[in-house]
Design a protein around this nucleic acid. Structure first.
Lengths: 215, 215
DNA sequence: AGTCGAATCGGACTAGAGTCCGCTTCATGG
DNA sequence: CCATGAAGCGGACTCTAGTCCGATTCGACT
């Protein structure tokens, strides 16, 4: 019975137990075994180093496993798939941004109108993307639908939806998804890298779009 | 050891000869050899049948090659990759929609205000997606960045951008990309299939979003 | 400390996408 | 009709993501 395994997406309506993936919100859930903790750390360290050294694209899962000194099974046990590994690596920076949203200073944090907060979110998230585009791209595209994986995505979606609702936008959930689709790594990479659009111009344009959604 | 590593997408500077890809706009470019024409047709026929019979996901390129009675090399010569095969299969329906835009009756075709035409486009494109979601998904997601492949995408983008410009929207190119990102197969599949959103509700919401972009 | 069940490990294995290159078939002009 | 060279063919091959399961290690409980 491999009812664990938390099958990589594709679950049409399963939503299994899914403990053991400390992606973003979870802080500590299970008392992991000592060797498991050690191996997890080794893998993250190795993956971060390899990605930085040789570029995300050209690092294979075998490379990561070898560099970390663990087997592939271990790698997949801990992170599910390549996208999960990338997600875990992003954890820290994402958490930082999330903190800014939940308890930071306005306009990103609470204490200002929803429209301005949403604009601040767009700007801040774009900045986050600029720093980590490669890894976010990996985390969102390794598998079809990876972008919608629960975890960080659910957080952004909830936040945007909440602000849009405050703005009395109709269908705030859908509008939130539209905004996040525009902020997907693949789309932003296309704008910044493939088309060579200057960052500031893109940022300004997306702020405009964000404003139009809150109108 | 090989330091080339030329990232697959982001086509750095390879761009081989690459004639012979009649994706969408090309009508007739080279006088293809008789056997080539025959094989191309055989592959399209087989692929269409297999996809319909067994679902897009579970058909491999080997299956297609075998069913068509050609080698894998031939398959790849004609279509480049799996996504290219899907794109070729979509050709006919896409062309129909394009015709409707270029010379059909209003509001989709010319003869009405740009805002209404854009709304009509959103509706029509969503309808097109509903019919062919699986294959569009394949054509857009088999490779990172496949969605932006020249061909049909360029047409939709140009059209939207043109209409947005007519509406005096700032940065019409970027706004067009935002709209098309919301209409990406992955996003629409997430709404319709994963979340079970009713088609009509989604359609209405996206019309709203479209309107807000033209405001 | 010693036992034991279960969690974890690791690397051989599978599957499918995409490449390579020697062989075959076409179609042109002599 | 035949020679010829180039376009096209095909299938063996490589490469990598992801799976499987026997061996190993942990740590709770005597």
């Amino acid at each position: 019975m491999d009812s664990d395994s938390s099958g990589p997406q594709s679950g049409s309506s399963k939503i299994p137990i899914d403990i053991s993936f400390p992606t973003v919100p979870v802080e500590v859930s299970l008392p992991l075994r000592a060797d498991a903790v050690r191996n997890r750390a080794k893998v993250l360290e190795a993956a971060g180093r390899l990605f930085a050294e040789r570029g995300v694209e050209s690092v294979t899962m075998d490379d990561v496993a070898a560099a970390a000194g663990v087997g592939k099974g271990t790698l997949y046990r801990h992170f599910g798939d390549k996208s999960g590994l990338a997600t875990a690596l992003l954890d820290q920076r994402e958490t930082e941004l999330q903190k800014g949203i939940l308890s930071g200073r306005p306009p990103l944090g609470p204490g200002m109108g929803p429209a301005d907060r949403l604009v601040a979110f767009t700007t801040a998230y774009l900045g986050f993307l600029r720093e980590s585009l490669d890894i976010v791209l990996l985390s969102q595209t390794s598998t079809t639908g990876a972008r919608f994986r629960p975890g960080a995505h659910a957080f952004w979606r909830r936040h945007c939806s909440y602000l849009l609702e405050q703005c009395r936008a109709p269908e705030p959930d859908i509008a939130a998804d539209v905004l996040l689709a525009a902020l997907s790594a693949e789309q932003v990479q296309h704008w910044l890298v493939d088309q060579g659009l200057p960052f500031d111009r893109l940022s300004a344009a997306l702020v405009q779009v964000t404003r139009s959604l809150t109108a």
